[in-house]
């Protein structure tokens, strides 16, 4: 398709800062400012300014690499953003029900693959004798399992500190 159409719509509805933020928060591995600028459709100098600001705000973490500085999402920021969404959208009873659902989902994977952890499942997928399609399904299940474990840890945090996270006053 004509690339310029969606790029123009994106640029019209999201500022350069928003585009840099959304791209850097979506990278699975830290990336240099040049790469982020390219994907956010901004000049490299603009990307550097916004990445520095995002790092000051604790949204982004910079990493020293052989090729220079790389930027990626700050894990504590990402984690707290998810927790805040949970405590804003749901009450603590609902959150407790989600914990039950997640634990069931994890138990189903543990039973289906006879593995104790996602790492065990990944190791089993790499064993000789496992065909490519099966290995792929196992890798996918391990990914789901890690995702469920992450969501479970968010929920446990949200429930434990629900009152603090939803309080109208914060200590000075």
């Amino acid at each position: 398709m004509d690339e310029s159409d969606w790029e123009a719509t994106w640029q019209e509805h999201a500022s350069a800062f928003d585009r840099v933020r959304s791209v850097v928060l979506a990278v699975p591995e830290p990336q240099p400012a040049e790469w982020i600028a390219d994907h956010a459709r901004v000049a490299e100098s603009t990307a550097r300014d916004h990445l520095d600001r995002l790092a000051d705000m604790g949204v982004v973490t910079s990493h020293a690499t052989d090729g220079g500085t790389a930027y990626g999402p700050d894990p504590a920021y990402v984690r707290f953003r998810e927790i805040r969404e949970l405590t804003t959208e749901y009450d603590s009873d609902a959150l407790s029900e989600f914990v039950v659902d997640l634990k069931e989902s994890i138990a189903e994977l543990r039973e289906a693959y006879d593995a104790d952890t996602p790492a065990d499942l990944r190791a089993a997928a790499a064993e000789p004798g496992v065909d490519a399609e099966e290995a792929r399904a196992m890798a996918r299940a391990a990914g789901d399992w890690e995702h469920y474990a992450y969501r479970l840890s968010l929920l446990e945090d949200a429930i434990t500190r629900y009152d603090e996270y939803t309080a109208s006053n914060v200590p000075a």
Binding site: M1, D5, W6, W10, S22, A26
Partner: peptide, 19 residues
């Protein structure tokens, strides 16, 4: 697909949907 990251792909797909 032209886009690579999730936000690029989101805006790209929404434009494809509009068309």
């Amino acid at each position: 697909f032209d886009g690579e990251t999730a936000p690029e792909l989101t805006w790209e797909v929404m434009e494809r949907l509009r068309k």
